[in-house]
Amino acid sequence: MPPSVDHVRSVTEAYLARHPEERDSLTLLFAALVGTDAPTSRKTYPAHVTCSAILIDGDRRVLHIVHKASGKLLAPGGHNEPADRHLRDAALRELHEEAGIPPSAVVPLSGYEDVPLDIDVHTIDANPSKDEPTHHHVDFRWAFHLGAEHAVTLQEEEVDGYEWRPFPSAASPTVRAKLALLT
C-alpha cells in the first residue's frame, strides 16, 4: 500500500515545524492532499509526490547520478510505488534501484529519521510519449549516511553516471543550504 494521505500530511507538518517559512512554497502539495487522487500517484496532476535520497559519505560528499531521461545530475530518486509504505521507503528503494546501494548500507541522518532534509517543488516538462502534461513534482528529500562502504552500481536503463560532490557543490541549492547548516 502506498503512503497514505495522512502519512504525507504528518511528514509535511513535521518538516514545516522546522521550516515554517516554506509553507507557501508547498501550495501545490496541500492541494494534492485534499484532492480525490492519491498524492503519490504519478498520474495525479498538476502535482504529485516523489522521493529522493541525499546520500552522504564519510568525506561529507553527496551522491549524484546522471539521469538518462534528462541528462541532469541529481540525487537518486523518483516516483512512489505501491509497495512503498512510507515516503522514506520510496527514497531507499530508488537509491537501491538507481545506484545499487541497499537500505542495509545506509543509516538516516541523525535527527532526520522521520523528517526529510528538504522538500522541493519543481516543474516537469510535458512528455507526450507517456501522455503526461506539464506538471510538478513535490520531492521529499531524505538524508542518509553511507553506513558501510558499498560500491555504486548504476541501473543502466535509467542512469548514465555518478559523482560524489562536496556539500558546497550539491546540485540543489536548497539541499546545499541545508547541508551547510549541518555540523
Rank of each mutant, 00 (worst) to 15 (best):
G77H: 05
P102Y: 00
E163Q: 15
H79S: 07
P3R: 01
G147T: 02
N127E: 12
S41T: 02
L28F: 09
P133F: 01
V115Q: 08
A171H: 14
P20F: 02
P103C: 06
D118C: 10
E21F: 10
F30M: 12
E113N: 03
R85C: 04
D24L: 14
P20E: 05
H136R: 07
A91V: 06
A105L: 03
S110E: 15
L63V: 14
I101E: 09
G35Q: 10
L16K: 09
S52L: 07
G100F: 06
S10A: 15
A90R: 12
E21M: 06
F144S: 03
S10P: 08
E98D: 07
I119L: 12
R61P: 09
T183Y: 01
E21D: 15
Y162C: 11
D89M: 14
L146A: 00
P116M: 13
T153S: 11
P166G: 12
D84G: 05
E156F: 06
L146R: 01
H67Q: 15
V107T: 12
H7Q: 11
Y112I: 08
L26S: 11
S41W: 02
W164C: 00
G111A: 08
R85L: 09
P133W: 01
T123H: 12
P3D: 04
D6V: 13
T36D: 10
H136A: 02
T40H: 03
F30H: 11
P102Q: 02
K130I: 00
L182N: 04
H135N: 05
L26D: 08
P3E: 09
P20D: 04
D125F: 03
R165M: 13
K72T: 05
E158M: 14
V8Q: 07
D37P: 02
D131A: 05
T12P: 06
V107I: 03
D6E: 15
A126W: 00
P133A: 04
L29V: 05
I54D: 02
R42S: 00
P166N: 11
S129Q: 05
V115S: 09
D160S: 11
A69R: 11
A148N: 00
C51M: 14
G35S: 11
D120E: 12
A105V: 00
A75S: 14
P173Q: 13
E97T: 02
T50I: 07
D125I: 01
A180C: 07
H48C: 08
D131V: 00
E94F: 03
T12N: 12
D24S: 15
D89K: 14
F167I: 01
A170R: 01
T123G: 09
R165Q: 13
P3L: 01
P103L: 04
A32P: 13
A151R: 15
I124Q: 07
P173N: 15
A148K: 08
A180G: 11
H150E: 06
